[in-house]
């Protein structure tokens, strides 16, 4: 059940797995990331992690189906109750990572 508010991102929880981007029926999510080598102490080989560079939701296209929230394996996407984010321009409906993250930030 959605509150028809806004979808918030928790960037630290996102692993750039692309599941939300690929499941989105309206193609309204975009993501940029790059791989980085992490050397763990005592490990024989470095491991590769994806580092999130950019994430955006186009709320002009979003149909608020919540599939992205449901499909995220790490709960990096969450519903937030805010609804007041109209825009004067079409581009203003596209919310970048920083703005998406702020919806869940404590006041």
């Amino acid at each position: 059940m959605t509150v028809r508010g806004v979808i918030a991102l928790i960037p630290d929880a996102c692993t750039s797995c692309m599941l939300c981007v690929r499941e989105c029926p309206t193609w309204c999510i975009s993501l940029q990331a790059h791989p980085e080598q992490v050397v763990d102490e005592g490990a024989r080989r470095p491991r590769t992690v994806n580092v999130l560079d950019a994430f955006a939701i186009d709320f002009g296209l979003c149909m608020y189906c919540g599939i992205c929230v449901d499909v995220c394996p790490f709960d990096a996407l969450e519903w937030a109750p805010d609804h007041d984010y109209g825009a004067a321009t079409r581009a203003g409906l596209v919310q970048p990572m920083e703005r998406l993250a702020a919806w869940l930030a404590p006041p």
Partner: peptide
Amino acid sequence: GYVPGCPPRPEALVAGLLDV
């Protein structure tokens, strides 16, 4: 002005109108 939502809530309508 654009009011996002699918559909937007009634409160979003008022907020969007006031913004504009």
